[in-house]
Each structure stands twice: as structure tokens, then as C-alpha cells.
Simulated scan of single mutants.
Amino acid sequence: MPEKCCGTCVQTKCTLLTADNPKVYIEINKTYVSPEDKCVHYTCKKINGQLSTSQMTVICPYFNPLDCEPGTETTHANGCCKTCKPRSVCEVLSNKEVIKVGKCESPQPVNMTYCGGHCGSMSKYSAEANKMMHKCECCQEFKTSQKKVELTCDNGSKVQHLYVHVEACQCKPAECVPGTTTKPQRRRRR
């Protein structure tokens, strides 16, 4: 009896073993996203006649829920990264500095206060106006006082100097400066 010849098996899908051990079959040029970790994507590719599974991990931008307006947290459509509307944080900050005026300076560093943080801003297209509408806010001083410090000069004399001490800060409307976005230029034909 002549030997029968059987066909050979041809792999048509990639096989992936998942953490909880069930096998997942991925079709060629298709991507599988694990329900346990939506930031990891597995793709089945055919390379030189062989099937291979590649893994890609989505890197999300920095996210801290404490920086969010309450109730604005959302997850991107990819199901992986989180985003939110940033909370306006404008606060009094300080650092120690030696005050110098001409050839006079404070003998010791002085606690200098200033405003720092981020405030709301927006750039949004308006169909009614048919242009981009901008809203800008800056973190600025809201309440200040004057403080006095004694400066010692090179010649040994002492002078009184008044400086501004920031006590409170707030987000204030500001003029939006036109951006640096450039329009695409058309190439000239020669």
C-alpha cells in the first residue's frame, strides 16, 4: 500500500499565554489588549514566514489626582491613561535671598515671597466667531505689604530698604500672547 502524504500544518494565529493561563489566539496583523492591563498591547506579525508576537506598553503622561478639579478625572479612549482638568494652583512660595541694592546688601538672607503655580488657560475654536478663542490667567500677587530691611554698604554705612512682601496670590485674567504656531508654507514651483 502506497504511503499517504498528508498536508503540513500552517500556523495562522499567534498564541499568547496570559497571566491567568488561558491561551489567547491573535490573528495576523491584529492587536490584543489584555482586559487586566489595558496599557499592554500584543500584536501578531508574520516575519520571514514565521509568526511572532510583539508587546508594546503604552507610556502615560504624568498624572496626579491631587492636581485635578474634583469630578473631572477621565480615562482616555484607549482605556489606559488617565487625564483631568487641572486644578488652578496659585500659591505663595518663598526662598531665602540676600537683598543687594547697588553696593549695599542685607547681612543675612531674607525670606522673599512670590507667587507660583498654574492657572487656567484655554484655546478653543468658536464656530460663531470663526476663529480660535483664548482665555489666559496668570498667578499674581493679590495682597502685599511692605517690609523693611537694613542693608550694610561697602563703606560701612547702613541704610533702610523697603521691599514688597507677598501675602496672598490668586489667578487673574491676563492678555494671551499670540502663539508661535506657524502656518504651513506653500512650496513655489520652479
Rank of each mutant, 00 (worst) to 15 (best):
K4I: 02
G7E: 12
T8S: 08
Q11W: 04
Q11E: 06
Q11V: 09
T12Q: 08
K13R: 12
K13L: 00
K13P: 15
T18L: 15
D20F: 12
P22C: 05
Y25N: 09
I26F: 07
I28G: 03
V33E: 15
S34V: 00
P35K: 03
E36M: 03
E36Q: 06
K38I: 13
K38G: 07
Y42H: 13
C44N: 07
I47P: 07
G49Y: 14
L51C: 06
S52Q: 12
T53E: 06
Q55N: 10
V58H: 08
C60E: 10
Y62L: 05
F63E: 02
F63V: 03
N64M: 01
N64L: 01
E69H: 07
P70T: 02
E73K: 07
T74N: 11
N78G: 12
C80R: 05
T83D: 08
P86D: 02
V89G: 08
C90G: 06
V92R: 02
S94D: 06
E97G: 01
E97L: 15
E97I: 14
V98A: 04
I99W: 06
K100T: 13
G102D: 06
Q108I: 00
P109K: 10
P109M: 14
V110N: 02
C115H: 13
C115S: 13
G116F: 02
H118Y: 08
G120W: 00
M122G: 15
K124D: 00
K124N: 04
Y125D: 05
A129V: 05
K131M: 12
K131A: 04
M133A: 05
E137F: 12
Q140F: 01
Q140H: 08
Q140N: 11
T144C: 00
T144I: 07
S145Q: 15
K147C: 08
K147Y: 01
E150W: 01
E150F: 00
E150Q: 08
E150C: 04
G156R: 08
G156F: 01
K158I: 05
H161T: 06
H161V: 07
L162A: 00
L162V: 08
H165P: 09
V166T: 11
V166H: 02
P173G: 09
V177P: 04
V177H: 14
T182N: 10
K183P: 05
P184R: 14
R186S: 01
R188M: 02
